[in-house]
């Protein structure tokens, strides 16, 4: 099935922004002869997302994630390159295209503030020309999936942040979009609700085969939902592939956790440990080390040889640490 494939070729965006200088003189000057500056927000991107895939767009703030999402939804016109979303060019904003996509913005609401969510849903149903009975049955289905029946009749302004996000999801999915764009959908929500929403998005994806493109700062969102990530930094696509492969991006490391049979200080770092090994923490019998992947075996051997080891675990670093290092290193 090719019907919701997203193809992006050489997509880029350069903002043409007036330069503002401090001071009165400069501001008067800019009134008559504004100086513009070209700020590349997204450098040529290429990727293909298959129908039904769930892909995360990650990168630090200002990396170009939102710009990319906005170009894919047709809100922002690219400076160049092609976007083909099942045959549509988003910039044309054809009704048929708009009917088959949806966007959830974690920090903005499309609900009407003073009336119950149910009524907002019916307005949207009308905008998307969904017949009344159909709308009712879709709302019922989504409401069951999100377990939110009890909030349907309360005015939106009285709802909690999590309840509002549930409403946003219903509002966005009412017209059964083939592609769903989620921009920070779990922003500011508690763990419980975050889990609930993730579960829902997965279920929705399975049920309707919708393609999902998501940005998030919560690694848990990405680990749970997306098998594939696109890492953008300074407007460039740095990585496209399995989440687990991200570790290979930087100099790969391993974490070693050791439990000792007796309390035995290793401070400062003894010389029998390999050069790249670093002690992350040490507390009573527990020792936590970080070491380059290629020296992991040597490090394990040295630990077993020199210390009364009761237990030893070698593991991959947590995703957050990896991402953090990528963001910090920047150019890599």
């Amino acid at each position: 099935m090719q019907f919701s494939k997203i193809e992006v070729k050489q997509l880029h965006k350069t903002y043409h922004v007036p330069q503002r200088e401090a001071g009165f003189k400069a501001s008067v000057r800019s009134l008559f002869r504004p100086i513009y500056q070209d700020v590349p927000a997204v450098k040529p991107l290429d990727f293909v997302i298959e129908s039904g895939e769930m892909v995360a767009l990650i990168g630090p703030n200002g990396a170009g994630k939102t710009t990319t999402l906005k170009m894919l939804t047709g809100l922002l016109h690219p400076s160049g390159g092609d976007i083909n979303i099942f045959g549509f060019n988003p910039s044309e904003r054809k009704p048929a295209f708009l009917r088959s996509i949806s966007m959830v913005l974690g920090n903005k609401s499309q609900m009407l503030w003073d009336i119950p969510p149910l009524d907002s849903f019916f307005v949207l149903a009308e905008i998307y020309s969904i017949p009344k009975e159909e709308a009712v049955s879709r709302i019922n289905e989504l409401v069951e999936m999100l377990e939110m029946r009890e909030i349907l009749k309360k005015p939106v302004r009285n709802l909690s942040l999590g309840e509002r996000m549930k409403c946003e999801l219903v509002a966005s999915l009412l017209h059964r979009p083939k592609v769903l764009f989620l921009d920070e959908p779990t922003l500011g929500l508690d763990i419980n609700i975050q889990n609930r929403l993730r579960h829902f998005i997965l279920e929705y994806n399975h049920r309707y085969g919708a393609t999902v493109l998501l940005t998030s700062h919560y690694m848990a969102d990405i680990e749970r939902l997306c098998s594939r990530v696109l890492l953008i930094h300074h407007g460039e696509l740095l990585y496209d592939g399995q989440l687990s492969g991200l570790n290979q991006m930087i100099e790969p490391i391993k974490m070693i956790r050791v439990t000792l049979s007796q309390q035995n200080g290793v401070n400062p770092k003894p010389d029998w440990l390999p050069a790249s090994a670093e002690i992350v923490s040490q507390e009573k019998q527990h020792l936590h080390l970080r070491v380059a992947q290629k020296e992991a075996a040597a490090c394990t051997a040295a630990l077993l040889h020199n210390l009364p080891v009761a237990d030893l675990i070698v593991e991959d670093p947590p995703l957050e640490t990896v991402i953090d290092r990528i963001y910090q290193d920047g150019d890599l």
């Binding site: 906005k70 939804t73 047709g74 809100l75 904003r93 009704p95 048929a96 708009l98 009917r99 996509i101 949806s102 966007m103 913005l105 903005k108 609401s109 499309q110 905008i127 998307y128």
Partner: peptide
């Protein structure tokens, strides 16, 4: 505040 995005996304 950017809520106009939602208006632009409507097929109307």
């Amino acid at each position: 505040n950017g809520q106009f995005d939602f208006t632009l996304l409507r097929p109307v």
